[in-house]
Design a protein around this nucleic acid. Sequence first.
RNA 1: GGACUCGUAGCUCAGCUUGGACAGAGCGAAAGCCUUCUAGCGAAAGAAAGCUUUAGGUCCAGGGUUCGAAACAAAGCGAAAAUCCCUGCGGGUCCGCCA
Length: 569
Amino acid sequence: MAEDSFREEIAELVTAAVSGKLDKNKISALIETPQQEFGDYAFPCFALAKAFKKSPYQIASELADKIKPTESITKVEAKGPYVNFFADTGKIAAATIARIMDEKNNYGSGKNKNKKVVIEYPSPNTNKPLHLGHVRNMLLGQSLSRILSFSGCKVFQVNLNNDRGIHICKAMLAYKLFGRNKNPEKKPDHFVGDFYVLYGKKAAENPELEIRVQEMLQGWEKGDKETIRLWKKINSWALEGFKETYKTFGIEFDRVYNESGHYLEGKKIVLEAYKKGLLKKDDKGNILAELKKYGMPDKVLLRADGTSIYITQDINLAKLKYNDFRMDKSIYVVGSEQVLHFRQLFKILQLLKIYGGELYHLAHGMVYLPEGKMKSREGKVVDADNLVEEMISIADKEIKKRYKNLSRAEIKKRSMQIGIGSIRFFVLKYDPLKDFVFNPEESISFEGETGPYVQYAHARICSVLEKHGGKVSGNADFNLLKEKEERFLIRLLSQFPATAEAAANNYKPLLIARYLLDLSQAFNNFYHQYPILKADEETKKARLLLIAAVKQVLKNGLNLLAIEAPERM
RNA sequence: GGACUCGUAGCUCAGCUUGGACAGAGCGAAAGCCUUCUAGCGAAAGAAAGCUUUAGGUCCAGGGUUCGAAACAAAGCGAAAAUCCCUGCGGGUCCGCCA
């Protein structure tokens, strides 16, 4: 019996009792899990008040009288406007644990069969290293990919390199003037970034540089050989550096697009659409999409002189992606300052019939430093690579404080798991939309609501199971798990599939992070209070199975956040 | 001027989709825990990526809406919102022929 068959059974009981005043699906959706002491399931009677013309309090007590306990539902009682149901402890535990042990890594996965999703992130500019803003973007994109894929979708991760334009030329020019043709003596994207910052400084002193940058851009667009050679060099350095950072985070793309390779194609689409009468020209001759009737400002898509702007290439990219993947859904992970841009883009894609599937902009808030907004032009950033390094070194210190005799390799492995896990969790536990103040000294600790806290719960269980040595038996008397803490754990375990589904439907890794905190906390609480290995033989069997199930679910959840679940730490 | 978004303990945040049973965590503050499977060659001691308790809230402000008790009609009375609606105040973002 699957654990949600309890819900199913209750829905049937209620449906029969209300004699058709409300259909079963609606009833099933209304069933909730109340605070523990009230019962295992609850049905609120507010929705019935109108049909019965009675107060919900009265309806609840009448329903409670009418519904008789069954084999698995042991008690039905009214409390205020709710009907509360108590399930058989042993049965509910057995159902939940059996399912987890049976489905293992798939427990909680969904059946969104064959739905194809393309998710685009982090789409960096190739003139500077990735910073904390990109980290947030990447971790969100990566986690969401895993969550959707777990829910049954076929997910394709793609990246767009914004590898052309004035910002690249700035780094190029500074290198040309001051770089003395050197090769990078550091991580190459950082090397490039230094010149971008240097340009900012020099241009402030010498405005003439701005003109030279413009000339360089024109040279690039005309295909000037020397400029192109320089561009290739700078660009490949940046990309080489990114590659390393992606590797650190375990990010791999199914396809990488380069703006330079396709940005001209967008023009054709726009011109064609104009011919069909889908777009208008303004009095200056710019081609624009009329969006006022959709509550947005109009958007120019092609300048009067025929040159394209940023959104032009976005339109083309949408087409390329569709040709490549034929996806049902297209997700863009981009900062919330571009909300309007994407609302416009999505509407335009619809109007021009370029992409008819579902579109979603996963917008995330800005990242601030305690001193204010990050400014990469001034080099005022928390750099992604340094951040990782710093976190790993903190983890390294913490490990060395606790263990004296670990091999260097083991320390390195653990500090990677813990350091990176801690960044991931820190970023993912907040609502993506909210702005984010990052204080390098204070923001990250290993105590409280953190990745290591969850990892530690997992490692603890592993260690108990290892100490136990033998196999965890497949059978036990689950009626023995009747402590409040045990019942609470089981309830949480049974809620994981619904949580994973909600995370996928609402694009919210946050839900997984909060769930993991709850589960870890519930486990620690239980662990602290009750012996496992020293319990009597039968109880021990049941508890071992319980914690093995907790371990499995912690692992599955961490995996959705792309955080490793260490066996020891 | 317009659009979007946020406002919940000293601080950082969940909860708002689908209103409803005492508004939840973490940090910080105060006090405790030797239960332990973590750690440890062992003892004492200590320690805890751990646990418990306490203090801390007009959920920004104001207004609105909202189940009902004897058939129908009219009138009157009428409890309920962090969550829904409106207004205001405060923060952030956007409104480019930049990306």
